[in-house]
Design a binder for these strands. Structure first.
Lengths: 252, 252
DNA sequence: CCTTGCGCTTGACGCGACGTCAACCTCTAC
DNA sequence: GTAGAGGTTGACGTCGCGTCAAGCGCAAGG
């Protein structure tokens, strides 16, 4: 009892292209070929196809399936390895979903804030006291003038970037990476560059903030509870500090 | 202040190949090129890169990122759409993980059973009563002889296929597909073919089980509590019955 | 002056599992 | 004779780059 490729395809719920693909890669050669190269499948081939489809349904890559079916690999082993892959992937997606959700709420909060008083924005005047106290009223005045000069559009854009940076930090914290890892250091670089873009910050004229300023700010982050909620709790804010300090020591 | 491609790559924690790719697809053209086509990036380009990387980190495809950055798409909209994609993908992975876990335990249970009395295997003699009662002692005898003739290896393989079929059914139930969908019907086809492979079943000589046998068996599945746990509870077993009946009416 | 080596360039293939034409063949029915 | 159904092989596209391969410009060392 042999069947044509379309019959098999309909029976198994796959496309004929898939069957020809499986033939091409040697996973499921037809049991025979007729006039003009037509492929014919007997019930042995169909049973092999059904095992292939089950394993494919479980997400195994085709070459793994080939290994399992040709007895070169233990099925239970292959499935266990695959389960690891699935779990990691799922974890990645969970973290990514959470990141996107945080970013969305941040953006929405940002647009709310935008409708209110601009000067209550995140990093700018919220830190007025610290800025004037540590770096002088002059620095604050320059920073404030720059902020006003941005205009509504520029301020909104700046806020967006600020929220993005926060979201990136909390995402990195959530992934549990090391503060000295390339990833965290890249974030620290972005953070420093972001700081350096504000004319009031010491060293901004040279294009990058001064080492002392960055380290001082980083320490202030852990000392001030208001920052903890911006960077994902105590764990998050110490992570940010460690990354920033490491970066400042190395690059500034 | 312009930087070379390597400087930017290190700063941002990506490869230079990535930057050239972004240039190629028009996502991030360098701010200028020098002698021999060398790419130079100013701080505007670097900030654009940083926004790109943040959005990429959130899992957005590059063309979506381009749309967002070039203001052709609303950022919040894009993220919300993306969040849908992420959630669906995560759900798929969760179901897949669960399927693999069920299959693994089924396989392990199968190997345990194999070590015990073979004749206590799932579908064979467990149904002895029903088989003899409905289809006669003759059918049972032929089925039994076939089973013994399989030998230890063949019996083990048969059990594996049986467990796989069960796992596929419960997976389909978990995904909530329709009993008349192509997917469920393909499973029903596999189920019928599996039944037809046992010489004792009516119609097996013709290569496929008889319509009445399949429907009768399907109804028996919902009537007998022992089947419910094999196919994922009451919901599962009625699903299996519906799919099998629909298939038998159409194809047998 | 020549070589070595670094950093950069463009160009191209590879991955995974097929979808989707395109161009052609074979058989049947009208 | 011709249209149509169902098959064939061949090749490109997907997505985000990694990874050669071959070559160019420039600086240091022989």
């Amino acid at each position: 009892m042999t069947s044509s490729i379309q019959d098999v395809a309909r029976l198994a719920g796959v496309s004929s292209r898939t069957l020809r693909h499986y033939d091409q890669i040697g996973l499921l050669p037809p049991s025979g070929t007729g006039h003009g190269g037509l492929r014919y499948y007997d019930d042995v081939a169909i049973r092999r196809l059904q095992r292939i489809l089950l394993l494919r349904e479980l997400g195994l890559p085709l070459d793994e399936i080939a290994g399992v079916l040709d007895e070169q690999t233990d099925e239970v082993d292959a499935l266990r390895r695959h389960l690891d892959v699935l779990r990691r992937e799922r974890g990645r997606l969970e973290r990514q979903t959470a990141s996107v959700e945080r970013t969305l709420t941040a953006l929405e909060k940002g647009t709310e804030l935008m409708a209110e008083d601009m000067l209550d924005g995140f990093d700018h005047t919220q830190h007025k006291d610290e800025v004037t106290e540590r770096w002088g009223a002059d620095a604050y005045a320059r920073s404030d003038a720059w902020w006003r000069g941005l205009g509504a559009q520029g301020q909104a854009e700046w806020k967006t970037r600020t929220e993005e940076l926060n979201a990136a930090w909390t995402a990195a914290v959530g992934r549990g990476v090391d503060p000295t890892s390339d990833e965290a250091q890249a974030l620290a670089a972005r953070h420093a560059e972001w700081l350096g873009a504000v004319p009031g910050t010491p060293g901004a004229d040279a294009g990058r903030p001064s080492k002392e300023y960055v380290i001082g700010l980083a320490e202030m982050y852990v000392a001030d509870a208001r920052f903890a909620k911006n960077y994902g709790g105590n764990e998050g804010v110490t992570f940010v500090r460690d990354a920033l300090v490491a970066y400042a020591e190395r690059e500034l």
